[in-house]
Write a protein that binds this DNA or RNA. Structure first.
Lengths: 130, 130
DNA sequence: CGGGATCCGACAAGATACTG
DNA sequence: CAGTATCTTGTCGGATCCCG
């Protein structure tokens, strides 16, 4: 197989941009929130139930960050039982597309990675790479 | 209310896969290493010089993880001055493609995010979202 | 040159309790 | 219901020393 990646001019500056969004979506819960909101508009509690493992502290923090980055829109309804809706913005939806690409890659090559790990883990001590 | 979700059937299981690779490339240096090796095969010291900010501890740890996941191949040359070469595997190159997609998104929408942040930061205290 | 081991600081993140 | 504040812990990551 030959390399068809051919990154055009991906210098340090561009890679820095990649780190930017990875800092944004690379944390433990952003992806989960984006994915959950990609399906539908949800309330705080609904999000908490959907994502399961998340604490209300991290959910709040994650939502705040995503809102600040313009990826999630927060709507407060001034009703007697407080109600706050969260939904993806258009920008957030484009990011969701990227996330789906990520998922596609993970599903496609996740098996290979698993095998590689097993093989690496099975190596005695020093691998005769040369 | 109806769901206008465009993603086909992205359930929790798939999202979990996305988290897997984000755990892998989401750390501080993996992207930088993958990007550096995407251009050419490099030695340890060369990698250290290319990535600049990285310490040898993190470079070693990052390389080890990437090697274990089958993304990077490590070649030891038994010569008098020790020489170790690192290069991307075919699997690593496909991941580089994903990374490039990420970079593309970052470059394309990074400006919008910046504006959103500025707007969010300029808000008084409670935004009349509803 | 390449890398392992250890110590230590900084921050992310979980659990809990409290508020409006 | 939708958060906020505090405490504690776990992990990441840098600095340093040492080895082959």
């Amino acid at each position: 197989m030959e390399v068809t990646v051919q990154l055009p001019e991906v210098d340090t500056a561009r890679m820095c941009h990649a780190r930017q969004i990875l800092d944004r979506v690379g944390d433990k819960w952003s992806i989960a929130v984006i994915h959950a909101l990609g399906a539908d508009t949800l309330r705080f509690t609904e999000l908490k139930r959907t994502i399961h493992g998340i604490s209300q502290r991290m959910l709040t923090a994650t939502l705040r960050t995503l809102e600040r980055d313009g990826l999630v829109r927060r709507t407060v309804h001034p009703v007697v039982p407080p109600r706050v809706d969260y939904e993806l913005t258009e920008l957030g939806m484009t990011l969701l597309g990227i996330v789906c690409s990520l998922m596609g890659w993970a599903v496609e090559h996740g098996d290979a990675i698993d095998e590689a790990r097993a093989a690496y883990d099975a190596r005695p001590a020093g691998s005769p790479t040369g």
